[in-house]
Nucleic acid binder design. Structure first.
Lengths: 335, 335
DNA sequence: TTGTAAGCGTTATCAC
DNA sequence: GTGATAACGCTTACAA
């Protein structure tokens, strides 16, 4: 099991106690001895067993971070931000992905508990989760956590997420003033929290203009990816319904929609406008420069870590919700 | 520090020993008692402290995985594959990213050692690393590891990587037969192993056709991204040098090159052909459908884990090198 | 300034 | 089939 404190202590002719003090650079050890011990430890490639250390210190310095998926640039950017921020606070990030699978999500939560993380940041799955009760295991083990991006209704915990409601209100108002009247939304599972918010925003905002947004206008994809979006958009175009604007869940779905529209010999944005969430693809590399709603990842991360810290210190259990502003970036898929 | 074995044992009125046996589903415990203990443990949200467990069992079930960066789809796909594969083998993945920073890389290696990972898979940084000696700490602690993607010359360890040499030979031959004679390569740090191999392939293959590939034809980017690639390509176009084909390090650089070429009112592939490594972007979303050299990520992962396993079992120390075939995917940037 | 010993939460080896 | 007890590698009083 690798080299251990005793090896260093023996090599230096001191006790494990002093070796430990020296290696952790604590006072109460002769400066010279300390330097010597540290040099030997270094030379011998000694790094304290984190398991033993965690046990003895009753803390691990670990924060668990859970995201649905790491092959989506939005999440990988988020994760990188989190890690950077945590590093500054001297925490070590343990990353877990769920692949949008409930069993994996549960497994990862359980792993966090096993590892005795001191806190967790959880991006919920983006498909329906009928019973996220396993998150309560965190509470039972006194591990504070925050939701980021969305949350599970059934679980009481703070949440930091983008202000989806006003993002959409803004986007719709923008589109309305460029003349759009027939709106569609194309995205994932209707019943998850974030999409409920989006639907509400669409319904209520359009109502203000005496337009209706019904379930028929929400095109629900089995999975939020290029492939399914392409099919759904084809279906819509084939139906010959009137459409002025399509709001999309992310960049990939937006480009799928764009491609279908072009295939039907219509022009974007002349005939149909598109706005999507997330600004993850360099506009220069895309088939079209997307008008999009950019989420403020920095803020999302900063706020959630701050709240987590607060919970870790105070042991406070209040479940506040923080909304982070988004930004509409106008490019070439809107007028 | 969360709920512990003793809590369960007390709640069930048994000793910690029996509780442990029951929870780990080991024989030697009355079936009913076992079921009862397991049920209670579950209900109380008990998950064994991995630190204590690791200490007691003298193994952690952890494999460390190190990649330069997680915001590049190539790596995130790789990581996901590795995790899936390791899961099947009942290992848990610990992911670390270096952001191409030597200090981070060292820090992460040290963390792997602290965690007492049972093995590590290391994708070296893609910039020069004058002194990767810290990898020897792994050896000192008896932790076997394999390189994936590339390797550090100074460190003796097995490596699984794409057959860059024949990839380029193929690509060049393909381009040659479509009439290209003036070749350029645009990519990262010249001196790292993978790029040395590429340069060698370019030089030697072109020599067979009596063409020269000198250092002038290797456009070295400070960082391999869209921005720097764009600048380098502009420089090249501005110089008015003759160029028939540009080979690129990845999809982003290739699209940068494409955009510059178009900006100079030249046609791809009529005037200039482009081939790049990596097939990470859906062709449907790109400004142009790229002809590219696809790496076989599945094979890369499978082979490296197999070799790692072998090393973990045999304690064998031979440093074989495995080359994985690539595939030329012809799309629209070549004739 | 240094060494000794108890304790962290498990598992494993024994007796019973 | 079950319950003590020693070990795992470290930190930290406390004693010397």
């Amino acid at each position: 099991m690798g080299i251990k404190l005793k090896d260093i202590a023996d090599a230096c002719g001191v006790s494990e106690g002093t070796a430990s003090l020296a290696i952790n650079n604590r006072p109460g050890v002769n400066e010279e001895t300390k330097e010597y011990i540290r040099r030997i430890a270094r030379k011998m490639g000694y790094f304290p067993n984190a398991n033993a250390k965690g046990l003895a210190e009753r803390k691990t310095g670990l924060i668990g971070v859970l995201v649905p998926n790491i092959e989506n640039l939005f999440y990988s950017k988020l994760v990188r931000n989190v890690e950077e921020y945590l590093r500054k606070l001297n925490y070590k990030m343990i990353l877990a992905t769920t692949n949008n699978d409930i069993n994996y999500e549960q497994e990862m939560i359980e792993r966090f508990i096993s590892f005795r993380v001191e806190g967790a940041i959880i991006y919920p799955m983006i498909k329906e989760n009928p019973n996220p009760d396993y998150l309560k295991f965190l509470d039972m083990n006194d591990i504070p956590f925050v939701f980021i991006g969305s949350y599970y209704n059934e679980i009481k915990a703070p949440c930091v997420m983008s202000d989806l409601y006003s993002s959409l209100t803004n986007a719709i108002e923008y589109l309305y003033h460029t003349g759009c009247r027939k709106f569609y939304y194309l995205g994932g599972c209707k019943s998850i929290v974030s999409n409920r918010i989006k639907r509400k925003a669409l319904r209520e905002t359009l109502q203000k203009y005496n337009l209706v947004f019904s379930d028929r206008h929400y095109l629900e994809l089995r999975k939020t990816n290029y492939h399914y979006a392409f099919k759904a958009a084809e279906q819509l175009m084939k139906s010959k319904k009137e459409v002025d604007a399509i709001l999309c869940a992310d960049a990939y779905t937006a480009i799928a929609v764009y491609n279908v529209i072009r295939q039907y010999n219509l022009e974007v944005p002349t005939d149909i406008s598109i706005i999507n969430f997330d600004n993850i693809l360099l506009p220069e590399i895309c088939a079209v420069k997307l008008t999009c709603i950019e989420q403020n990842v920095d803020q999302l991360v900063e706020q959630s870590i701050k709240i987590l810290q607060k919970r870790m210190e105070n042991n406070s259990t209040n479940s506040e919700q923080i909304l982070v502003e988004t930004k509409l970036i106008v490019r070439e898929t809107t007028k």
